[in-house]
Design a protein around this nucleic acid. Sequence first.
DNA 1: AATAAATACTATCAAATAGATAGGATTAAT
DNA 2: ATTAATCCTATCTATTTGATAGTATTTATT
Lengths: 137, 137
Amino acid sequence: MISNKCKYAIKALTHIARYDDGYKAVMTADISREQDIPRKFLEIILRELRNNRILESKRGKDGGFRLLRPAEDISLTEIMRIIDGPIAMLPCVSLNYYRSCDECDEENCEIKSVFEQVRDRTLEVLNGKTIKSLILT
Amino acid sequence: MISNKCKYAIKALTHIARYDDGYKAVMTADISREQDIPRKFLEIILRELRNNRILESKRGKDGGFRLLRPAEDISLTEIMRIIDGPIAMLPCVSLNYYRSCDECDEENCEIKSVFEQVRDRTLEVLNGKTIKSLILT
DNA sequence: AATAAATACTATCAAATAGATAGGATTAAT
DNA sequence: ATTAATCCTATCTATTTGATAGTATTTATT
């Protein structure tokens, strides 16, 4: 399962991508109201996306958030990794968050290859999806 | 990510499948030692698998656990659902643990179809895997 | 009948994570 | 100055994860 936080992040980004006219920034309060996401929680999420160079923010009156890159250059996997961490089902098959398993001999692990296959099939779907492709659906 | 508990469950089952000679039951202590799984935690897992009709147990001296069905009839998805619950990444696309999302209009959800695809690709891999197929790898 | 050795059961616990909320500091447009 | 936005720090509660302890019960063997 992805976390609520991650789902909120994706929905916030699609909202921003849709409403960003290249001029006015999109405000937290608007996203919160229209996507039904708790406001203070959303603030944290948007700041985290800004810290990871997905968004840029403008403070003060008429402030808000804008995509730092075109929506077609922001992949779902990137967002999911920022918010939730690894996508793989086992730490030892994660491409971006690899950790070895304490108790198993990785060379002879029986379950590793299964979860490598799951990872590859999952990424085949997710790698192709961007914020842009989501809002066209 | 699957939980450690689930990884332990799968490893315990492959261990039992390999050592079960149809006569003597396999003891918790042996599995614990050879698979390096904390013993008391393993007890809980094995009991849970027994309660879900994956294993049968024998108490007392010379007791232990045996597969209740042939290893080729126990799928990975069944074990994962028993121990960790849903396999899908969103509650609203789960086949066995469906729950609607509070905050979204499911008809018009932008992200649902992506995670349906992920679910389908994942199940394509996992549905084919059984305890039997794991120990032959 | 006693003993040894196994699972069954109940209770508990510590750490991490999820999912937020509160309140004030800072910034910027008017 | 005022208003309205993000930024930041701290805090909180509930749940889940990953276990451990101790006792009860069952069964094979002697």
